[in-house]
Structures are given as structure tokens and as C-alpha cells.
Design a protein around this nucleic acid. Structure first.
Lengths: 139, 139
DNA sequence: GCAAAGTCTACTAATTCGATAGGAATTATG
DNA sequence: CATAATTCCTATCGAATTAGTAGACTTTGC
């Protein structure tokens, strides 16, 4: 299950990427357009800024805007910031690997091997879709 | 993230499918072999039995065993019993569909469309791998 | 100086997860 | 028939996570 944090984060990124120009957008504007709790969105955008994908400007006329690199960034990167691991099981995670306590031999664990397949197929989507492509919505 | 319930359930199914013959196996045996809390496994196997994939026998010499159909059953079926929806978002779930409260038009939601892709690629693995194939572990 | 924005920390309510406890029902065996 | 072994079932629990809220602080433009 995708957390709301990730869902909201992706929707906000999509919103910003779809805008003409790149003027700062206020949190309140996005939150209203996408039906997201404003305070919650606040913390989500903050984490995307800290990760280096958004810029921000305080004060009147301020808001958030996409940094240039964001458009070419694959969704996998945003997913990892917002949700964490893409893998369904830590023992097959590339970026958040952890051994399973219960599993003596990973390579012989059927679940492990299955989840590698699932991870790879999900990854091929998330790594090969940039934010730019994400918002090109082919009806 | 895969819940432990699903992970344990799949491991238990794998254990049973790998056995010679189809004599009942006691919960305690599986729980020890796979390092799973016995009481927890108890409830997991019970739900697989209620779903019609396992048989059980009480009393001495009793235990759980695979019903014939289980071997030919795709993992997707077990996943849905144990974990619930395969989709990462209810609005793209085939078996557990729910509308998103925040989304006025699903077909124009980028997250929705992305998650359809993810669902389909995951599904193609889980629907095309039967329990039988699952345990044929190609080193 | 004032109002409008983001920043930051802390808190909370609800839910879910993994696990446990304990007894009831059923079956094999001697 | 008595006993032990096993599944069946209900109830409960603590910890963690999630989604959201509150409120004060900082920066900026006018």
C-alpha cells in the first residue's frame, strides 16, 4: 500500500510539473487543488526540498517550485524519499537492505527470489519514468 | 511492504509444496523449520484452510496438508488472502476497489495511471507463477 | 511595520501488526 | 475409556506507524 504521504507528494510534484512557467506555488494552492490537508502537505514538500528537488521562497509571493533536475528525475527517487524502500521485503532492497532474521539462506528462500522479480518489474517502471514523462498523460 | 503474515504464509506453503508425499504436517514442525512464531502461524494456516487451499486433520498425527488445487493456484490468490490487495492504491485494485476521496477524475490522475502500470507488472508475476512453480527454485 | 509565506518541533488520535494466552473440540492410541 | 496430541477459536495486548494538528518562529515583500 502506498502511504498518503507518497501519494500526496507525487500529486504535488505532478501539479508543479504541469504548471506553465516555474513561479513559486503556495502550499495552500496545491493543497486546495489536490484536496490535501495543508499542514500535512507542508511537511511533505519540506522533505522534497531537503532532498534537493524543490526550491522554496518565504514571505509574500513565496512558495515552492521545481528545481531543474527534478523534471529529469525518475520517479523511483521521489518514491524512496517519500515512501522508503521500493522492495516489498528488506532482504531484496537495493537501497535499504536488511537481512531477514528468520532466513538462514537468502538464495534458497522462495519468497526472496519471488520478491526480487517483483522488485525488478516495479523498478523498471519507476526508474524509467521521469517526472516529465509522468505528467504527460496519454488519454 | 510485505506483512509478516504474507511472508510466513508463503513460506509455509512453500514448505508444504516441497515435501514428498502429502501427509499432514504439524504447525510446530513448519514453525520450527521456518522460524515462525507458532501461534501466529496457527492463525495464518487457519485462514488458508478457510479459503480452501489447505486441509487439516485434528488430533494425534494430524496437521495441515495441501489440497490438490493448491499446487496449480497462482500466487496472486494466496497473496490476496494473506495480504489483501495487490494494487498499491485502492483505486486501481481489481479485487478491492475503492474510490479515492480526494480524486475528482481517476482517469486524469497521474498517480492512478502510474499505479495501474505497477499493478499490472506485479500481477503478471503473481498470476503467472503457481505454487508448484514457486518452489522450483532455479539456482 | 505588517502581512504573507515557509520552517520547525512537538503532540495526538486512530489504526494496524505481530504476537500471546488459554481453553474447547477432535482424533489416535493403548 | 483415558490420555495425549493436535487443530480451532476468541480475546487481548503492546509497539509501531500513520495521518493529521497546534503553535510558535523566521524570512520576505511592500
Amino acid at each position: 500500500m502506498l502511504s498518503r504521504k507518497t501519494k500526496y507528494g507525487l500529486k504535488a510534484l505532478s501539479y508543479m510539473a504541469r504548471r506553465e512557467g516555474n513561479q513559486p506555488v503556495q502550499i495552500a494552492v496545491i493543497s486546495e487543488a489536490e484536496n490535501i490537508s495543508q499542514k500535512f502537505l507542508e511537511s511533505i514538500l519540506l522533505s522534497l526540498r531537503k532532498a534537493g528537488y524543490l526550491g522554496s521562497k518565504k514571505g509574500k509571493g513565496g512558495g515552492y517550485y521545481l528545481l531543474e533536475r527534478a523534471n529529469k528525475t525518475p520517479l523511483a527517487a521521489f518514491y524512496r524519499i517519500l515512501e522508503g524502500p521500493i522492495a516489498m521485503v528488506p532482504c531484496v532492497s537495493l537501497n535499504f537492505y536488511e537481512r531477514c532474521a528468520d532466513c538462514p539462506d537468502e538464495s534458497r528462500c522462495d519468497v526472496h527470489n519471488l520478491m526480487i522479480q517483483v522488485r525488478d518489474s516495479t523498478l523498471s517502471i519507476l526508474e524509467n519514468t521521469t517526472l516529465e514523462e509522468f505528467v504527460k498523460n496519454p488519454l
